[in-house]
Amino acid sequence: MQLPKFLLGDNTDFPDDIFIIHTDYPQFIINLVNDEIEWLEDVTGENEDELTNEINDLIEQASSFYDREMERYKE
């Protein structure tokens, strides 16, 4: 099965939160309300500067994904 790079998630236990799940390496869930990240796999041992840049890029991609999805819901 091929999964999309990002998935949108919500949960009635957290009614004000918006979750984006990143399914590629490094897998994580980000709460867009407070930018808190929960890592689903170990990312230690990586080049720290490279990893920081990659994470920042992925967070921007997750935000863009959310904005795109919300625009599509409006249509």
Rank of each mutant, 00 (worst) to 15 (best):
N56V: 04
R72V: 06
E50K: 06
A62S: 09
K5E: 11
P4Q: 09
K74Y: 04
D67W: 01
Y66W: 09
D24H: 09
D35E: 14
Q27V: 13
D16A: 02
D49I: 12
V43W: 02
Q61P: 04
D67S: 00
I20L: 10
N53F: 05
D13C: 03
V33A: 06
F65P: 10
E48Y: 10
L8W: 07
Y25W: 14
I21R: 14
E50V: 06
D42A: 05
H22I: 06
E46F: 01
Q61C: 08
N34M: 12
N11W: 10
E69A: 07
I21M: 08
F65C: 11
L32R: 03
D13E: 13
D24L: 10
N53D: 12
E54K: 05
I30V: 15
L40W: 00
L40M: 14
P15I: 04
L8C: 05
F65G: 04
I59W: 07
I55G: 03
Q2A: 01
T23E: 05
D13M: 14
E75S: 11
Y73G: 12
G45D: 05
E54A: 14
L7A: 03
Q27G: 10
N56I: 00
E41T: 10
L58K: 15
F14I: 05
E50N: 10
N56C: 02
Q61N: 07
P15F: 08
L51F: 15
L7P: 03
E36T: 14
L7V: 06
L32K: 06
K5Q: 11
G9E: 09
F65W: 07
I29K: 05
E41Q: 13
G45T: 08
D49V: 13
I37G: 07
E50W: 11
S64G: 07
I18N: 07
I30P: 05
V43G: 00
M70Y: 01
F28T: 00
I20C: 04
I20E: 10
